[in-house]
């Protein structure tokens, strides 16, 4: 049974059809790639799934629940987390605090009472946050303000912040942008570990060495429409995909 299903989803901005009749099915445990040229609607799709703006038409179903009426913060509590294409951390909070404020999953609700959830201090929650900082290679930087971290560290912290919400589905919006080959290799290891822990991944990415190496299935967008879908090998061989990426006459 599908974890996330987009049924002929459209979003128009004025006359621009940013996403146009998109169907997607993501199965639990998949690493699903979403690729396409600039402006093809990838980030818009992520923003629609997290509810930053309403759909023009169509529907999005997550775990048999129609997301249409849910505001963004409640979608997260059903288990959808994301990172941003242009990093959006809380710059004047420390790395540690960035993860602290992200612990909003219902599992965290249940474990702590209202008092320690909202009014409690920093003791007693150290363990999970330490694990996440360790996972991201940021343990030594925990008391640094997020704004003072290096670019690669900020990307890793943003990923850790999304994981701190205990997602069932994590949407990564171009996580490899601006990274060098070594960092991309580390990111790839992290994505595989995230999946191994039971989290489904939707990876929006331009960097082909990452997408082709790590995904189970890929959908290709162009001008808001899906032009191909399949395994990495199938997609690479697809004529329409080649044309969209390399150009060529209609």
């Amino acid at each position: 049974m599908a974890l996330l299903e987009l049924k002929s989803v459209s979003r128009h901005f004025g006359g621009v059809r940013a996403v146009d009749g998109l169907d997607l099915v993501i199965e639990p445990g998949q690493i699903f790639g979403l690729i396409g040229p600039n402006g093809s609607g990838k980030s818009t799709t992520v923003n629609l799934i997290t509810g930053l703006f309403p759909l023009t038409s169509g529907s999005i179903v997550f775990q048999n629940e129609d997301l249409e009426k849910l505001p963004t913060h409640l979608r997260l509590q059903t288990g959808i987390a994301r990172t941003f294409q242009n990093i959006r951390l809380f710059g004047q909070l420390t790395a540690w605090q960035n993860l602290w404020v992200a612990q909003n999953s219902p599992a965290d609700w249940a474990k702590r009472g209202f008092f320690s959830r909202w009014l409690g201090g920093q003791s007693g929650v150290r363990e999970e946050i330490s694990q996440l900082l360790e996972f991201s290679g940021l343990a030594h930087r925990q008391d640094e303000l997020a704004a003072n971290l290096a670019f690669g560290e900020q990307r890793r912290l943003e990923l850790a912040r999304a994981l701190a919400t205990r997602p069932k589905l994590i949407l990564l919006d171009e996580p490899a942008a601006g990274m060098n080959t070594e960092e991309i290799g580390q990111l790839r290891e992290r994505i595989l570990k995230i999946r191994a822990q039971g989290t489904t991944v939707l990876l929006v990415e331009h960097v082909m060495e990452l997408v082709m190496g790590v995904t189970d299935r890929i959908a290709v967008l162009n001008f808001g429409q899906k032009i191909a879908e399949g395994t990495p090998v199938e997609v690479q061989a697809d004529a329409a995909v080649r044309k969209a990426y390399l150009g060529g006459g209609e």
Binding site: P71, H73, L76, F84, R88, L89, V101, A102, N104, T165
Partner: peptide, 12 residues
């Protein structure tokens, strides 16, 4: 600091 990011980590 950032309302959009705050919403996206589940803050009402």
């Amino acid at each position: 600091e950032d309302e959009l990011a705050a919403q996206s980590v589940g803050i009402n």
